[in-house]
C-alpha cells in the first residue's frame, strides 16, 4: 500500500468536494437540520427550555450519529460518484489499488465526520448548553469507535453496490439507518424486545452510545463497553473488507467491473 497514492486520492476527493454543492448539503446541512429537529422535540417533551435527561440522550445520540452517517456515506458515495460518471475503473488502470482508494475515502470521511460532529456539538451547545467537551479524553475515543463502525458498514454497502450494480445506490444513504432503531443510538437497547436485543448486541454503536450516555448523564466511565465496541469494530471492518474483496473478484470475473466505464 502506497501512502503517496492515498494522499493523491485525498487530493482527488478534495477537488471533488470543493466543486460539489450537493456533497456539502448532504453532509453538513442535513446533519444540522436533523439535529435542530431533535433539539426542539427534546424541548417539547421536557415541556420547557431545558431538554431534560431523556432529551440530552436524544441530542447526544444525534450529535454522535453524525460520525456514523457521514463516515459511512463518504466511503460509499466516493466510489458511487466515480461509478455514476463511468470513471471508476479509469482510476484502477493506474497503479492505484482498491485498498488505497478505500483508505483514502475512509480518511476523507473521517475528516468530514469530525467537522460534522463539531458543527453539531456547537449547535447543541448553543441551543441547549449541552457540552460534549465534558466527555474529556474519551471524546476522541468515542468518535474514533463510531467512525470505525461507519467504515465497516461502508465497506459492506460498497460490496453490495459492486455486486448489485449502481441500481443499488440508494443503499449508500439508506442501509445505515437500519442501525438507528436497533443500535442504541437514542435509547438503551433494554427497551427493545429480547430478539431485537440480540441483534443490537452485534452493533458496536450499542456499546458506544451506552458508554456516552453513562458518562455524560451519570458520570460513569464504562470501559468494558468501550473495549467491546472496539472488538466489534474490528469484526465489522474485517467482514466488510472480505465482502468487498469477494464482490470485486466477482465483478472482475463477470466483466461488470470493466463495464463500469462503458
Amino acid at each position: 500500500m502506497s501512502a503517496n497514492r492515498i494522499v493523491y486520492i485525498l487530493l482527488h476527493t478534495w477537488y471533488h468536494f470543493i466543486h460539489s454543492m450537493e456533497t456539502w448539503v448532504d453532509i453538513f446541512w442535513n446533519t444540522t437540520v436533523n439535529l435542530l429537529i431533535f433539539i426542539f422535540i427534546a424541548k417539547l417533551i421536557a415541556g420547557g427550555s431545558a431538554v431534560g435527561v431523556e432529551g440530552a440522550g436524544l441530542i447526544l445520540g444525534m450529535v454522535f450519529w453524525n460520525a456514523v452517517w457521514v463516515g459511512q456515506y463518504n466511503v460509499t458515495i466516493g466510489a458511487l460518484w466515480e461509478m455514476w460518471s463511468k470513471s471508476f475503473n479509469t482510476l484502477f488502470i493506474t497503479p492505484l489499488t482498491m485498498e488505497e482508494f478505500i483508505v483514502g475515502q475512509m480518511i476523507s470521511g473521517a475528516l468530514k465526520s469530525i467537522i460534522a460532529v463539531v458543527i453539531s456539538a456547537l449547535v447543541a451547545y448553543w441551543l441547549t448548553g449541552l457540552s460534549v467537551i465534558t466527555l474529556g479524553w474519551m471524546l476522541p475515543v468515542y468518535v474514533f469507535e463510531l467512525l470505525a463502525f461507519s467504515w465497516g458498514i461502508g465497506l459492506m454497502v460498497l460490496a453490495l453496490i459492486m455486486r448489485l450494480g449502481t441500481d443499488a445506490a440508494s443503499l449508500s444513504w439508506s442501509l445505515v439507518f437500519l442501525v438507528q432503531p436497533f443500535g442504541g443510538v437514542f435509547y438503551a437497547v433494554t427497551v427493545l424486545p429480547d430478539a431485537l436485543q440480540k441483534i443490537a448486541a452485534l452493533f458496536p454503536s450499542t456499546y458506544i452510545f451506552a458508554a456516552i450516555r453513562a458518562q455524560y448523564l451519570d458520570g460513569v466511565l464504562e470501559t468494558g463497553n468501550t473495549w467491546r465496541a472496539l472488538g466489534l469494530d474490528a469484526v465489522w471492518i474485517l467482514l466488510g473488507y472480505i465482502a468487498l474483496r469477494l464482490a470485486l473478484r466477482q465483478t472482475l470475473t463477470s466483466g461488470a467491473f470493466a463495464r463500469l466505464s462503458e
Binding site: H12, Y15, H16, E82, S85, S87
Partner: peptide, 15 residues
C-alpha cells in the same frame, strides 16, 4: 474513457 466529472481538466490530469 471518462474522468472525474466535477474535477477540472487540470485537476484530473494532476491527480
Amino acid at each position: 474513457v471518462e474522468m472525474a466529472p466535477r474535477l477540472s481538466v487540470y485537476e484530473n490530469l494532476l491527480v
